[in-house]
Nucleic acid binder design. Sequence first.
DNA 1: GTCTATAAGGTGATAGAC
DNA 2: GTCTATCACCTTATAGAC
Lengths: 204, 204
Amino acid sequence: MVKEKDTTTENKILTAAEDEFIEKGLTGARMQQIADKAGINKALLHYYYRSKDKLFEVIFSTILKTLIPKIKRIINEDVDLYSKIRNFANEYITMLQEKPHIPGFIIHELGTNPDRLAKIFGKLEIDISYIKNQINEEIKKGNIRNIQAEQLIINLLSLCIFPVVARPLAEPILFSSNKEEYDKMIESRKTEVGDFIIDSIKIH
Amino acid sequence: MVKEKDTTTENKILTAAEDEFIEKGLTGARMQQIADKAGINKALLHYYYRSKDKLFEVIFSTILKTLIPKIKRIINEDVDLYSKIRNFANEYITMLQEKPHIPGFIIHELGTNPDRLAKIFGKLEIDISYIKNQINEEIKKGNIRNIQAEQLIINLLSLCIFPVVARPLAEPILFSSNKEEYDKMIESRKTEVGDFIIDSIKIH
DNA sequence: GTCTATAAGGTGATAGAC
DNA sequence: GTCTATCACCTTATAGAC
């Protein structure tokens, strides 16, 4: 039994649509362009997915449904807090290197249409209570300084995601548009972010 | 001599256009909607600005040209590094509370059309060498640990901007969509971010 | 400067043959 | 399932009166 390759029409459509939507956003994307990228024509697109909105919903929720579990796996891993922070930074930045436009895409589409999240949020079952407890335990034990768990979590996310999302603006400012320098910075952040956070919260 | 109020037609257009573009992005914005918000009609819009693209360029560059100087003022202020970091976090987050959608807007439009930056980048004269020197001085003096200046700067920007930009996704995850809790978190970050960074870099 | 009316072109969506 | 041809609508843009 051979798995269906990426050459089936449906998969070609999905790949092309993800490309186009991530690149241009919902309103900027063009059905004609998706059809071209998939090597088919518009009519066939509507045969598989009745409307642009339908197709977008499929792409958008698929992206979230593959992204969120990866995050959940890392933050719920059964390791000590420091390792968890280091692992998250390392693994998440690696993910972002492969698909750097995903966070910006999600944020933009959620910003222009917040209802979209509600539709699929229930199914995502995001629960940060485990890592929150872990943080509060370490504070109680006196291993790290007092800090609101949510603040620490958003700090971790910020330091991982923002430099990738804001690259179009940050690269020219920080490195005079030197692409290689910026890539090197992102690469070294896989360990830098963990160091930075732990230096900040550990009791010296 | 009385200054022209915001009620002049041109200003009403600019205000309405900024609103619409920031809310929907270039491709999502509608000239009809801008005309409605300004209390005029489409034809008059084209009388003042020949095309949607022209109007957008005006709005986009105006936003950058008012934003960048504010940032430059803070980072080039003649105060010690710790104060500068604390001031930046405090003042910049305050700015973001008033206009939270600006960074997301810039990032998205720059992402879908990177050339846009080149058009106006020369005029912005962004120069981070002063704060970079300041950072490297403090390292040399042994006041803060060794860290690449660009890493420290992007960390500061990340911690200020990301929680505001990513709010549509972060608020439901961190606070079960409790708006007030999220507002409180942002508010307390005006001092938390400075503390967090300085705790991380100072030699203990 | 400001309006109404309309043009011109693009875009999502459908009909119908194969 | 896949195509060609075409529709219906929406959006930007212009013409021309006031």
